[in-house]
Design a protein around this nucleic acid. Sequence first.
DNA 1: ATAACATCCGAACGTTCGGTCGCTATAGTG
DNA 2: CACTATAGCGACCGAACGTTCGGATGTTAT
Lengths: 205, 205
Amino acid sequence: MSPRSSLADAARTRAAILAHGAAVASVEGLAGLTIGRLATDLGMSKSGLLGPFGNKETLQLQVVEAAADVFWREIWEPVADRPAGLPRLAAVCGSWVRHLARPVFPGGCFFIAAASEFDDRPGPVRDLVLGYADRWHRELHGQALRAVADGDLPADTDPEQLVFELTGLVLALHQALRLRQDAGAVPRACQGMARLLGVPVQPMA
Amino acid sequence: MSPRSSLADAARTRAAILAHGAAVASVEGLAGLTIGRLATDLGMSKSGLLGPFGNKETLQLQVVEAAADVFWREIWEPVADRPAGLPRLAAVCGSWVRHLARPVFPGGCFFIAAASEFDDRPGPVRDLVLGYADRWHRELHGQALRAVADGDLPADTDPEQLVFELTGLVLALHQALRLRQDAGAVPRACQGMARLLGVPVQPMA
DNA sequence: ATAACATCCGAACGTTCGGTCGCTATAGTG
DNA sequence: CACTATAGCGACCGAACGTTCGGATGTTAT
């Protein structure tokens, strides 16, 4: 086929490692990620796989970053053009629900799993996951604030409370889909979000 | 000291293993439970620790059962004498919140962690965790049904939806406490529950 | 053509994993 | 007092863990 530079090959190898790593970690956990397992899956040697990263923790951190890219692209970007405030907030909820209901990662939402796994394990991985969680939280909070300022939500709405409850619905949906395999939870999550926001929410097409 | 039978000693050893195992698993995960780690912590040999259980999976299963006992005793039993229906439902919510806010296990709620860890890993451990989750879900659902039948909740209340949203608030509280270390989430969870139930909810004293 | 370089492999390292086996020390039983 | 049962220990096993190292291979630049 077309000749490719070795530099481009390395980049694609790295991307393949991170993509597969995120997929495996969504099921087995980030700590359950194994150099040997990854190498076998990708038909590589352990040393060749570890090469670009140096050690396992660096690999874990970059897997988290790669998953964050997917998360952002999957959920936020499709709704970034919606008007700020309530419209964008309702849209991101629909987008979020769709992400959970779709087999993007075999183990469901990478970040819900990673957050639960590392919530009590201090270290760089936890710090990184927490950083992304904070960023996400602030993003939602900002839209909620704007929605109140615009008068699209009741003036006595507490944005912090709203984000808290929206997050809860997402977590409940994740657990229902993953543990209980109850697809009926999708409309339940949407209904709960709609009640909180006062506008319909449906999983984005 | 006082002489004890070897049978009683064995039972207490077993209980100590399971208690410490549940504590460690709440932080490191059930899969991260390690025979050697447990043995070192308890000042035992690996073989002596594994003896009563035979293999690791049996140990894991019995750790789950031991944690379920604690969970039941911590959350359900204190409110079992409340009148069925809405009073008991509101009480169990308060009891639940208190459990999350208290350092019962060093890693927070054992079952939330275990459910997230094993939601995508088929096998006996998942089956057992799912069984307890179902039992818990049915218990809440029954009380919600009763509350509607009693007229303590609006007639158009969907008990399934109610349980779903209550669970979401608990999951959000767990994440806020553990990952974000935000103690302000406790009143937020109570407020959400109170809004769902129409009666005040406060963490049981 | 050749030197330089990057990519990746294969083999080995020390450690830890879950698990097995035989032994000792102690408690209960006749 | 002997006899049996059992709780737990210490030594050990093969496998897998993360990591290191030197070399084979193939692309890029001179």
